[in-house]
C-alpha cells in the first residue's frame, strides 16, 4: 500500500515536471509583447529584460525558473496585469474568493445530491425516480453558463433578490458578501447536484439488489435498518472518493461562473493573464491547474484503498 502510494506520487511529480517543462518552453517561444508604447523607453525595457535574464539560453532560464519557483516561491513579477507586483502574492490573494464560492457550493450540493440520489434509488422505477432522473438528465446536459445566465436574469434582475455581481472587498464572512455570492453558488451547485445524484442512484440501486441485502432482511432487519447500515455504507465506497476529488478540484474554481458573476478569483486571474499576455501569471496558474488535476486524481485513487479494505492497492 505504502509502496503503491509512493509510486503514484513519484509518477505524479514526473508527469507534473514534463507538463511544466513543455509549458515553459512553449511560453518562452512566444513573442514578447512589451512593445514600445507611449511613455515607455524601449532601451529601458530591453535593459530590464537583459538584467532579468530573458536573453540567456532557454535551458539556463529553465534552471533558474525551477530553482526560484519551486524552492523560493518566486514566480517572477507581473509584466502587464499588476505591473511589478509579485505574482505569487497576487495569486494567493485571489484564492479566498474562489475557495469561498466553491466551498459554499459543495456544502449545498453534496447533501442535496446524496439525498436525491438515495431517494431515487429507494423509489427506483416509480414516478419519483423518473422525475429525478429526468431532472438529472436535463441539469447534466445543460451547460453551466445557461443556468448562470438564468439565475442572473431571474433572481438578480427580475426578482432583485441578489446583486448582479459579487461584492468586492475582503470581508469574506459578512452577510452582504454571503448574499452576493449566492447566485454564483447556485449556478455552480446545479451541475454538481445532478452529477452526484446520478452517481449515488446508480451505485445504491446496484447495492440494493445484491445478495447480502436479502440476507439482512431475512435475519430480521427492517428495510430502513438494512438500507442505512448495509446498503448505504457499501454504496459510499465509490461515492466518497468522488466527493473527495471534487473537494480538491474546487480550488481551481470555475472560469465561466467567475466571469459571469465577477468573482475576483483564480479563474478570473487566469483569463486575464491570457488576454493580457502576462506570462508569469500564466505559468504559475498553469502549474497550479495541472497540479490540482493530478492531486485530485491521486486522492481519488488512494482513498479507495483506505475506505474499502477489500481493495488492495498495487497488488496484482
Amino acid at each position: 500500500m505504502v509502496k503503491y502510494v509512493i509510486k503514484r506520487i513519484a509518477l505524479m511529480f514526473f508527469v507534473f515536471f514534463v507538463i511544466l517543462t513543455m509549458c515553459f518552453v512553449l511560453v518562452k517561444l512566444l513573442p514578447q509583447t512589451n512593445a514600445v508604447q507611449f511613455g515607455k523607453d524601449a532601451n529601458l525595457i530591453l535593459q530590464r529584460r537583459e538584467a532579468l535574464g530573458y536573453n540567456k539560453p532557454i535551458l539556463v532560464q529553465y534552471a533558474i525558473f525551477l530553482k526560484r519557483s519551486l524552492l523560493q516561491h518566486d514566480w517572477g513579477v507581473s509584466e502587464a496585469l499588476y505591473l511589478g507586483q509579485d505574482v505569487w502574492k497576487v495569486f494567493v490573494s485571489k484564492i479566498p474568493a474562489t475557495l469561498m464560492v466553491n466551498i459554499y457550493s459543495m456544502l449545498l450540493s453534496v447533501p442535496l445530491g446524496l439525498l436525491f440520489g438515495i431517494y431515487a434509488a429507494l423509489k427506483k422505477n416509480k414516478w419519483q425516480d423518473h422525475v429525478i432522473s429526468t431532472m438529472v438528465m436535463v441539469f447534466i446536459s445543460v451547460p453551466s453558463y445557461v443556468y448562470a445566465l438564468l439565475v442572473q436574469y431571474l433572481l438578480c434582475f427580475k426578482l432583485k433578490i441578489f446583486p448582479l455581481q459579487m461584492k468586492s472587498g475582503t470581508d469574506y464572512f459578512s452577510w452582504a458578501m454571503f448574499i452576493s455570492v449566492v447566485p454564483a453558488v447556485l449556478s455552480l451547485a446545479f451541475g454538481t447536484i445532478a452529477g452526484l445524484t446520478r452517481y449515488t442512484r446508480a451505485e445504491l440501486s446496484e447495492v440494493l439488489t445484491s445478495d447480502f441485502m436479502l440476507l439482512a432482511r431475512t435475519k430480521g432487519l427492517t428495510r430502513g435498518q438494512a438500507t442505512i447500515r448495509h446498503a448505504l455504507r457499501n454504496s459510499m465506497v465509490p461515492i466518497f472518493p468522488m466527493i473527495l476529488g471534487e473537494f480538491v478540484s474546487i480550488l481551481s474554481g470555475s472560469l465561466i461562473i467567475e466571469k459571469i458573476f465577477g468573482v475576483p478569483g483564480v479563474g478570473q486571474l487566469y483569463l486575464n493573464s491570457i488576454t493580457a499576455l502576462d506570462y508569469n501569471f500564466y505559468m504559475l496558474l498553469t502549474a497550479f491547474y495541472t497540479l490540482i488535476g493530478l492531486v485530485s486524481g491521486i486522492v481519488v485513487d488512494i482513498s479507495y484503498g483506505f475506505i474499502d479494505p477489500r481493495i488492495r492497492m498495487g497488488e496484482r
Partner: peptide, 9 residues
C-alpha cells in the same frame, strides 16, 4: 501525460 494537461492550458 497528455491526458493530464488541463484542456484550458
Amino acid at each position: 501525460i497528455l491526458s493530464e494537461v488541463p484542456f484550458i492550458v
